[in-house]
Design a protein around this nucleic acid. Structure first.
Ligand SMILES: [Zn+2]
Ligand SMILES: [Zn+2]
Ligand SMILES: [Zn+2]
Ligand SMILES: [Zn+2]
Lengths: 170, 170
DNA sequence: ATGATTAATGTTATAACGTAACATAAATAA
DNA sequence: TTATTTATGTTACGTTATAACATTAATCAT
């Protein structure tokens, strides 16, 4: 029996393996950011790039003030406003998402295609990743049609244990 | 043809009509709170009751500091801690939910039966209500099984326009 | 190029949300 | 009553986010 084909090949949403080569993730993200900004006629300035790099330091969502600390490790004097402004910019262009349940930010691996993000958040390794939200969105739409509610934005953040951490805890 | 039966008769989740008799909602909620606390062997003290009343002042989620202001309208000196402690208590007993996307709290109309809450939030009238989350939960489970992710808590908050506000804006 | 205009960043202060730690008081149990 | 637990009071602080205005850098028009 052949392996079952993936349902959504355009979204390779595997939870990041604890020992993967993360430098490639970061490199990819920065390259994508360049492309996206170019396409949007937006400027990826130094501070914006540095914030994006801080966000991509891992797959764990990071708080604005932790980003700030990272930017100021060299003794710099960057203020919170600068970070929040950069984050706003990055979110506008779909390069970063905000996780409401954590007051934290995470890089978007699918920045080229616009989408509403649905997250899985592992309470053990703290990693978060976007899930394929099509089925959920469909279920939401169906449920809402009975209410007459017109959705504009879906905030979906599932907390739990990723496969790697679940295995370990077994 | 007879009217189609409701799928989830135990959860009458209509979005609150702008001109409904809200005093009944409040009265119901307080009565339920009494019952629940009795059943749990917990004490619905005065401050807890007052916080619950503040939460039920409307169907719009309310911030902790707005609750605090409400409690201190008489010139009282209640401190933030007291409010947060009362909210923690009320959440433990399923009488109140927290909306992560708003940093705000809302009374639970279904406090008697334990459940994970999925919310619809109207950006116009600011009301929020729990939706029937069974279909969404099913979709989430199905999607997650492909990831091997083990869910423990679902944060689902759909922002948009309720039927009443949508009609008006038409 | 020069000046006008817009975009981005710097700077200071403060708002908004939430918790730690320890003291006191009230309720319950022994 | 005395001990124990539960709840509240109090002070202080930590964390997250934004308002308002000044300055600098990039872009555009002449
Ligand atoms: Zn990676
Ligand atoms: Zn994990
Ligand atoms: Zn009501
Ligand atoms: Zn509405």
């Amino acid at each position: 029996m052949a392996t079952r084909p993936r349902k959504t090949p355009s979204k390779p949403q595997a939870f990041p393996h604890p020992h993967h080569d993360h430098s490639r993730c970061t490199a990819n993200a920065l390259r994508t950011a360049e492309t996206v900004c170019e396409k949007h006629g937006a400027r990826l300035t130094e501070i914006r790039r540095r914030v994006l790099e801080a966000v991509w330091a891992s797959h764990a969502p990071i708080g604005a003030y932790d980003i700030l600390a990272e930017l100021n490790t060299d003794g710099g004097k960057i203020a919170p406003m600068a970070v929040y402004r950069a984050l706003d910019f990055l979110m506008e262009h779909g390069l970063v998402h905000r996780l409401a349940s954590l007051n934290a930010f995470i890089g978007c691996a699918l920045a080229s295609e616009r989408h509403t993000a649905h997250f899985l958040i592992c309470r053990s390794c703290k990693s978060a990743t976007e899930m394929d939200g099509t089925a959920v969105t469909r279920a939401v739409k169906k449920t809402l049609s009975e209410h007459g509610f017109v959705p504009e934005n879906e905030i979906i953040e599932i907390q739990g244990l990723c496969a790697h951490c679940h295995k370990e805890s077994a």
